[in-house]
Design a protein around this nucleic acid. Sequence first.
DNA 1: GAGTGGTCTAGACCACTCA
DNA 2: GAGTGGTCTAGACCACTCC
Lengths: 251, 251
Amino acid sequence: MPNTSDDKRRAAEMPLYRRLAATLQQEIERGRYTANAPLPAERELAASFSVSRDTVRKAIRLLEEQGVLYSDHGRGTFAAPEAVRQMSRFLDSFTDDALKRGGVPGQRILGLDAVAADMAVASLLHLEAGAPLLRLRRLRLLNGTPVGLQDSWLHLPAGQTIRRQQLEAKGSLYRLLVEDLDLHPSECLESLSATAAGEDEAGLLGVPAGSPLLACERITLSDRRQPIEYCEMRYVPSYRYKTRINKWSLG
Amino acid sequence: MPNTSDDKRRAAEMPLYRRLAATLQQEIERGRYTANAPLPAERELAASFSVSRDTVRKAIRLLEEQGVLYSDHGRGTFAAPEAVRQMSRFLDSFTDDALKRGGVPGQRILGLDAVAADMAVASLLHLEAGAPLLRLRRLRLLNGTPVGLQDSWLHLPAGQTIRRQQLEAKGSLYRLLVEDLDLHPSECLESLSATAAGEDEAGLLGVPAGSPLLACERITLSDRRQPIEYCEMRYVPSYRYKTRINKWSLG
DNA sequence: GAGTGGTCTAGACCACTCA
DNA sequence: GAGTGGTCTAGACCACTCC
C-alpha cells in the first residue's frame, strides 16, 4: 500500500525496518522474550506491524548481525542469550567503550606534533616517505588510572589540523574526526599480540619494566577507503579487548 | 520468470545470489577490478546476469560483509582494497587460519581427560558444578615451532566423547565437532589481554618464564546457543590475532 | 502435513552524489 | 538532471523442522 498520506513525515524518519528493529530490540532487552525464546513468525510480525514480510526480514537480519536475536531455518526466530547481546561486534572509540562498560574514560595528551612520515608509517598509510602527518600520543585512563597508551599517526586532508584544546574538549578523537573534520572512519584492520613494556611505557602506565602488555596495531580507513590513521596501542593486563565472532566459517 | 525447466538441478545447487557473489568475488580477486574501482551498477548486473535487482543486492551485501567490496549510496559499488579483502572477519579454526596464512599447522596433545566442572568453568558453561566435562590441553605448532597453548573444557552431549586418535587424525577440533559429532559452533565470545608466562607455559612454549603472552579466553556456543566449550589460549608474541571491524558504531 | 525461515521476482519510489 | 544505491511492497515457491 504505497502512497498513503504521511509522505512528508516519512522523509524525516528512519527507515521502516530500522524502526521495527528498534522496537523488537527494546522488547527483547526489556525481557519480553527470555533467552532462546521464540519470537512471532515473520509473517505474523509483518501482519501485526502492517509491513511487508521483506521489511520484517531486514529488521531481523540487522538484529542478527548485532547479536540481539538469531533465526534458524525451519525452526523460528529466537532472542539471543544476554551474554551474546552484550558483546557488540562493532568497534567503539575508547571513550564509548569505557562508558558502555560503566567506567569513566579519561586521557592525558602526551604530545601532538606535526611530523614527517618515516618509511614504515608511510607504507602503512600508502603515502610517500616524508609526507606531513600529525602524531598524537595519549595516555588513556579508566576511572582515573592509566590503562593504555595510544600512539597515532594521522593523515588529514590538506589544510586541516587538530588543536590540542579541541581534542581535550571532545575527549574522543573519533568524535572529533566525524563532527569537526567531516572524516568518516568506516573500517579498521587490527593486529593484536603480546609485548613487554619498555622503560618509558612502564613509567607512564605505572607497571614494572618488562611487564606483559596487550599490543594492538590498527589502520583506520575513511569511507572512501583511504587510510587516515595508523595507531599503536599498549594496554595493561587488566584491560580486556572483547569481541564476538559469528557465522563460523567452517565448511 | 519462475518455473523454467531446470527445477531438478536447481535443488542441488547453491542459491542464485551465492553463485553470483562467488562470480563477482572471483572477478575481483583476479584483478578485473583494481582497488576502489567501480563495479557495474546494480541494475546493469541484474540485466547481464538475468536475475532480479534484489538478488544482485543480496550478493553485494554478502560480499560487503566479507570485505570484498563496498557500496556508497549515490556513488556506486567498488572493489575493496586488497588489505581489507585479506582480513577475514570470521573465525577460522587454528588449522584453517594457519593454512590461509601459508603456514603448516600442527599440534601436540598434552592431555585429554574426563573431569568434573569446577565452579568457575561450570558458571561459564551454564552447568552445575561437578558436571562431566572433557578437558583437552594442546600445544599448537606453526611450521614445527610452538606458538600457542590451548586449554579447553568441552561439554559434549551425553554419551558422546572424543578419542585421542580421532583428534590426531583430524587435526582440527572444530572439524571433528562438526563432522563426527554433528555439533555446530555458531558463535564465539572472546576476551583478549596480556599475561606473563608461568613456569610450565614457558617450558612448553620455549620462552623464558615471565615472557609476555597473548591471552585469549573463548566461549563457543552451539547453533542452539548452548555453551559447548570454554577455552583458554596463550600465544607467543610473534603470533598475531588479526581482525577487521566495519560499520563504525559512532553516532 | 503444518509451520517456519530462505530465495526470488518485478516494479515503484526515495535519497544521495556529482557534473 | 541523470545515475547511483536504499527502501518497500505483494506474491510465489522452496527447504527445513517437528509432530
